[in-house]
Simulated assay, not measured.
Amino acid sequence: MFTGIIEISGEVIATREEGSNLVLTIGSAIAGELKIDQSVAHNGVCLTVTNIGDNIYETVAVAETLQKTNLGQLTTGQHINLERAMVFNGRIDGHLVQGHVDGVGTCILREAQDGSWLYRFSYPSGFAGLIVEKGSICMNGISLTVFDVTNDQFSVAIIPYTYTHTNVQYIQPGTQVNLEFDILGKYVARQIAVNREVLAAS
């Protein structure tokens, strides 16, 4: 589990294909603190550390992950948001995030405002039931509050700290981002669907 509070930004040092998988080599100041088989969120995607070197480590994204996220678009030199798994003896500053990305959204607007940045994203309408006004979303691993929500778009406001300490600063119109919708909303939606099925069958 994660919180959506980005710990540090890493750099993609190299990528290589191994069958249908993609091996990512990530450079980061926290590499020396990691352990093999540990979970780390990469742009919000939970991946397992498979190898550790000097200020670098490797992780593997399988085919299904590449189909549902933006990790397959990563190239050498790009910045990636990193968060280690949460510790259950402290405050949760964001919201509960699994690192299980539901799909990708696309930036359709970036607007500098007085002291913040406004971004608007489109997203697949099939997820409309999982996003609510002033609710939480995980975007590229960042816990954010959404507003101006429609059935296929939402907006977020980015404060200067988040802008300078994550890769949101590189997002432009057309950029695809990873989206994970709130797990509580998923359970509610599933329960409603099951109840309807039971009623229909009775």
Score class of each variant (00 low, 15 high):
A85Y: 09
T75I: 04
V156I: 14
D152G: 15
F154D: 01
G105V: 13
W117G: 03
V149S: 07
T162W: 06
I131H: 06
Y119I: 09
D148V: 01
G135V: 11
G99I: 02
A112N: 14
R91G: 00
H79T: 03
V156Q: 04
Q98E: 13
Y163Q: 08
G72H: 07
R110I: 00
Q78Y: 02
F147H: 14
I137V: 15
H79D: 01
H79N: 10
T75K: 15
R120P: 04
G90I: 10
V132W: 01
A112Y: 05
K134H: 10
L144F: 03
F121V: 07
I92C: 05
G94C: 14
C138Y: 01
H95I: 03
L96I: 13
I142A: 08
S116M: 08
D93E: 14
A85N: 11
V149T: 06
R84Y: 02
H79M: 10
E111F: 00
S122K: 15
L109M: 08
A157P: 00
N140L: 09
D102F: 10
L96W: 09
R84D: 00
L109C: 04
S155E: 08
V101Y: 06
G141N: 07
Q73D: 09
V156R: 10
I159V: 15
S143H: 03
T75Q: 15
K134S: 08
L82A: 02
H100Q: 05
E83Y: 12
N89H: 11
V101S: 05
N151V: 06
